[in-house]
Each structure stands twice: as structure tokens, then as C-alpha cells.
């Protein structure tokens, strides 16, 4: 069992192996389809406009050694204008496969949290950077919302609540490393092993 706090160092990442349980602490940011598309088009392939420069600088600070969470939360707005997370489980990560490797490299991201795993481009970026893929427990929305202690700020609210970039402070957010920085992917291993077992079961009748 590992307990890590953002920003995370390269040494800490290299020390993680697939199957490890990790409790994450510190500031992380949610980002899913719209956020990834925006970061690629405006900051990575494009150059930030004068208007977008402050946000770019904030993200560079936040994501250096940081973690992005694939999540579209259910949120509650309080009378004093602050927010809290009500339900916040992971969403399917593979939709970000086209963007993720470039986002990891550009911002020196150390981890991505989601569910279902990601593909070879992300695995390659994890090996080089280094970074890891953290698998949250699909459906554990109430529990994960309890691990979100504070909603610090929100960027790009015009994307809508699920797609906005929520900066949150988490305490002991439970995840499992399913893709590590040594080229291992549980998703690949389990699929290959289960394919062999399926073939054996279909041999018999």
C-alpha cells in the first residue's frame, strides 16, 4: 500500500507496479472529453491567446507532477457560492486515448485516474515520462465524493458541470495502478489470460 501526495516525484512513480493500491492526496483536477480536446487545441498544438495565458500558467503549475481525473461529477452549489461533490466515480478513459499521451508529456503529468484502462500510446507515454494509470473503482461514487475534501476552483464552466475542469483537494482517494511506468498493463495481461481460458472452455462441450 502506498500513500502519495501531489506533486508526485519520478522516483515515487518508478516505485509503483501494476496491482499496487495507492491512496492519493493533495490537489488534482478533473478533465474529460471537452477538457482534453481544449488543452490539445489551445495549449499544446496551438499557442495560448493573451486571454487564455493566465489559465495556461495555472494549469502548468497544477499539472507539473500532478494528476488528472476522468470524471463528470454530480455537484452541489452552496448558498455562500462554494461547491461540493455529491457523487464522483470515474468515467471510461479510453475516449481520451487520442489526447492523453500528449497531455502527459506537455504538462509533465505523473498520473491519470479513470476506469477501464487505456491503450498503447498512453502506455508508451507512461514509460517515457514516467507516469502511471490509476484505476478508480467504477461505481464507487459516494465513497470517492467523501474523499473530495474541498472544491478549490473550477475552470471552463462553459463546458457544463460534467465536462468542466474542477480543481479538488482529495484525501486518501483509493486507486489501483493498472498501467505502470515499466510497460506493464493489467488490462493487456487479463485480456490475454482470459482469452486462453475462453478457448479452453469452448474446446469442451
Amino acid at each position: 500500500m502506498h500513500r502519495l501526495t501531489t506533486p508526485i516525484s519520478d522516483e515515487e512513480i518508478r516505485g509503483l507496479r501494476v496491482g499496487d493500491t495507492v491512496y492519493l492526496n493533495g490537489l488534482i483536477m478533473t478533465g474529460r472529453d471537452a477538457a482534453h480536446k481544449f488543452m490539445i487545441e489551445h495549449f499544446i498544438k496551438g499557442t495560448p491567446s493573451e486571454e487564455e495565458l493566465p489559465l495556461y500558467n495555472e494549469l502548468k503549475k497544477l499539472l507539473d507532477g500532478g494528476v488528472i481525473y476522468h470524471c463528470g461529477p454530480v455537484v452541489k452549489k452552496h448558498e455562500d457560492g462554494t461547491w461540493s461533490f455529491v457523487a464522483a466515480g470515474p468515467t471510461t478513459s479510453i475516449r481520451e486515448e487520442v489526447y492523453q499521451a500528449d497531455v502527459i508529456r506537455h504538462f509533465n503529468l505523473k498520473g491519470v485516474i479513470g476506469k477501464g484502462g487505456m491503450g498503447p500510446r498512453t502506455l508508451q507515454a507512461c514509460r517515457e515520462q514516467p507516469a502511471v494509470y490509476f484505476h478508480a473503482i467504477g461505481g464507487a461514487a459516494s465513497l470517492i465524493a467523501q474523499a473530495v475534501k474541498e472544491v478549490v476552483t473550477v475552470y471552463k464552466m462553459e463546458f457544463g458541470v460534467p465536462e468542466a475542469m474542477w480543481v479538488i483537494r482529495v484525501e486518501d482517494f483509493p486507486v489501483v495502478v493498472t498501467m505502470d511506468s515499466h510497460g506493464n498493463s493489467i488490462h493487456q495481461q487479463v485480456e490475454e489470460a482470459s482469452r486462453a481460458r475462453l478457448e479452453a472452455l469452448l474446446e469442451a462441450d
Binding site: G72, P73, V74, V86, A87, A88, G89, G138, G139, A140, A141, S142, A145
Partner: peptide, 8 residues
């Protein structure tokens, strides 16, 4: 807490 088991 009477909150959704899953956000979906």
C-alpha cells in the same frame, strides 16, 4: 447519506 451508489 441517501446519495446515489453510482453517479451514472
Amino acid at each position: 447519506h441517501s446519495t446515489p451508489i453510482c453517479q451514472d
